[in-house]
Design a protein around this nucleic acid. Structure first.
Length: 449
DNA sequence: CGATTTTGACCCGCGC
DNA sequence: GCGCGGGTCAAAATCG
């Protein structure tokens, strides 16, 4: 940063051509010459200030993140331990400042450190080269819709929207109600735009029934997992009555067999849903807020995690809506991947209708607290989102979006990881870990970090 | 011929 | 107790 102090030559060339008769000027010249070392020193200092300012800024950010980490740890400490003890299923865990187990297994040389950095082995001062996870929660006064009045009156379905914006861990009265209500198996529902009968989620399914459900002219198909004869996992698939291009897939149960990588995360969601239920009722807003954030992180991180490296208050990410709902006494988590401005933004190769959003639905029969997170914005997120559609005869024309196999796998994994993150652990660390791990796993060499 | 899908019957829980 | 609706069963049909 030059600040116009480098004036030696013009200045002295000017004085040097003056006639010696102007003795006053001679004095000035000698005076100016005497000042030269000082000016040079000042110039030198100014030149070196910007890097220092940047360094200080960086240091402050780190302290800022540390502060939030400590605050958050206080709130979520119990949740983490509870979950890890309670759920014996595969859990993608990510301890702050350590390398996740998954990464140890993988060939990846990336190191993930929440609140710190995730980057290649060598240090690099360029922030844009780093995959940092600034988990500071948004302090920016971007308006967040908190609608405590919005309650679905449907007798079979109740929707609760949780505020995920503020990091308040206090329990609402409704959350306590949740504790008291016995619920059936938790379910995980994924809404995607897909023109085939089912979306490929990495598992093998066998159809065992079909019904016309009330209120929806589209038949609901029932599938069970056939990867193991005793596998209890089931799913049902139904088209949305309002928009038949939207496919709603609902999973229930826990696989009792090994799964492919692409299926693993998705598959474990239902088993974790029960713990999610417990956790959500006990953790209230915090659990959902953090998992919801992680979900968004997962979906958003594929092309550009850069926004994560920036101060969160400056680059909040988008999380359109978080709700809690119950269907037939089954707590249901819904990932709504059908309408996220996120995915609308910049990928011209992707149809707008295949954009995605993240919506979490999770509910309980008679509780009634609600809120929403609508304003997590982000920067430069371009996500190639595609669905791996199973090509089976159907009433719908076979339809492929982004036919590349890697992207199909990618989206499957992404959905799966997001779902898993949501359901497997209400604590922020675990959910975020799933997201990050998914990202790291899938990025390979292709995506820009 | 085995695996999968189709489809009507049946079971079960819930609300009235 | 009854009716409704979601979910499952199982025999028949179909597919590869």
């Amino acid at each position: 940063m030059e600040v116009g102090l480098n004036m030696e030559k013009p200045m002295f060339s000017f004085f040097e051509v003056e006639e010696p008769k102007f003795t006053e000027q001679d004095v000035l010249v000698s005076s100016a010459k005497a000042e030269m070392p000082q000016v040079r020193e000042e110039n030198h200092k100014l030149k070196h200030k910007p890097p220092r300012v940047l360094k200080d800024d960086k240091s402050l950010r780190m302290h800022f993140n540390d502060f939030f980490q400590q605050e958050f740890d206080k709130s979520s400490e119990n949740l983490v331990s509870d979950h890890q003890e309670g759920d014996g299923n595969e859990l993608i865990s990510l301890s702050l400042g350590t390398v996740s187990s998954y990464e140890r297994k993988s060939d990846s040389t990336k190191k993930v450190n929440c609140f710190g950095k995730c980057k290649q082995d060598n240090e690099d001062d360029d922030d844009d080269q780093e995959l940092k996870l600034g988990l500071g929660f948004e302090l920016d006064p971007i308006p967040t819709k908190v609608d405590f009045n919005h309650v679905n009156k449907d007798k079979s379905t109740q929707t609760l929207e949780l505020p995920v914006h503020g990091l308040k861990s206090e329990r609402s009265e409704d959350a306590e109600l949740l504790d008291q209500i016995p619920l059936k198996k938790a379910r995980v529902s994924v809404k995607v735009v897909c023109d085939t009968q089912t979306m490929n989620d990495g598992c093998q399914w066998r159809k065992y029934g079909q019904k016309i459900a009330k209120g929806n002219p589209c038949p609901r198909a029932y599938y069970r997992c056939t990867m193991s004869s005793s596998c209890p996992v089931r799913k049902h698939v139904q088209r949305c009555a309002e928009d038949r291009s939207v496919l709603i897939t609902t999973y229930e149960g826990t696989h009792d067999h090994p799964l492919s990588v692409s299926a693993t995360a998705m598959a474990s969601t239902t088993s974790a849903a029960a713990s999610m239920l417990n956790s959500t009722s006990s953790t209230s807003k915090l659990g959902l807020s953090t998992t919801a954030a992680a979900i968004t992180t997962s979906f958003s991180g594929h092309h550009d995690m850069g926004f994560l490296s920036r101060p969160p208050q400056l680059y909040p990410f988008y999380l359109p809506k978080t709700t809690i709902s119950t269907y037939q006494s089954h707590p249901t988590i819904t990932l709504d991947l059908t309408s996220n401005p996120f995915f609308n933004r910049s990928n011209s190769s992707m149809s707008p209708r295949h954009s995605s959003s993240t919506c979490l639905n999770f509910s309980s029969p008679s509780s009634s607290f609600s809120s929403s997170i609508n304003e997590f914005n982000y920067k430069n997120a371009t996500i190639p989102f595609s669905y791996h559609v199973k090509e089976t005869p159907s009433n719908y024309d076979s339809f492929k979006i982004n036919s590349g196999s890697s992207s199909q796998q990618h989206s499957t994994n992404t959905i799966a990881a997001a779902t898993k993150a949501l359901t497997s652990n209400p604590s922020f660390q675990s959910a975020l870990a799933a997201s990050i791990t998914s990202f790291v796993r899938n990025v390979g060499g292709g995506a820009k970090i």
